[in-house]
């Protein structure tokens, strides 16, 4: 069973775009044998297949603001994230990795996404 990474949708904030980028670094790149993602809004429409994936997998959530949509929706579906990452908190440890805008997160945002990817990998995402 693959591990599941779920970012917030974050259409209004650069931090949301960074969460999305970090997710793709894991689910679409060299770690795609281990990680996958699902569409977050499917959890608010009570999609049964998505709920089952959340219930049966190790779920990592990446949120861009204190509303923590990704974590809240995983719990709404009955799941319990093994790790909840807040993008701004990761930035606090690497202040030079500040993202630019939601349209273009820039080099800082890409570095921040890389930081998040490494936090998840170091948590045990890769055996």
């Amino acid at each position: 069973m693959k591990k599941v990474v779920i970012p917030c949708s974050g259409i209004g904030k650069a931090f949301g775009a960074v969460a999305r980028e970090a997710t793709y670094l894991l689910a679409d790149a060299e770690y795609s044998d281990t990680f996958r993602t699902i569409c977050l809004p499917l959890l608010m429409t009570d999609d049964e297949e998505s709920k089952q994936i959340v219930l049966e997998s190790d779920v990592y959530t990446i949120d861009g603001c204190p509303k923590k949509c990704a974590s809240v929706l995983v719990r709404h579906a009955g799941g319990n994230p093994v790790m909840e990452i807040m993008t701004p908190k990761v930035l606090a440890n690497n202040k030079e990795h500040k993202p630019e805008t939601v349209l273009d997160i820039g080099d800082g945002g890409r570095h921040l996404a890389d930081d998040i990817m490494r936090i998840i990998l170091n948590h045990g995402g890769i055996e």
């Binding site: 949708s9 259409i11 209004g12 949301g16 959890l43 608010m44 509303k67 949509c69 809240v72 929706l73």
Partner: peptide, 28 residues
Amino acid sequence: SRAATLEVLHHLRPNETVTICLPLFLAG
């Protein structure tokens, strides 16, 4: 769909449109 929405919000109709993250309807 996200890219098209952002294009309208930021370039085509920036003063006439607003958005919100969809999951906030449940989480907010």
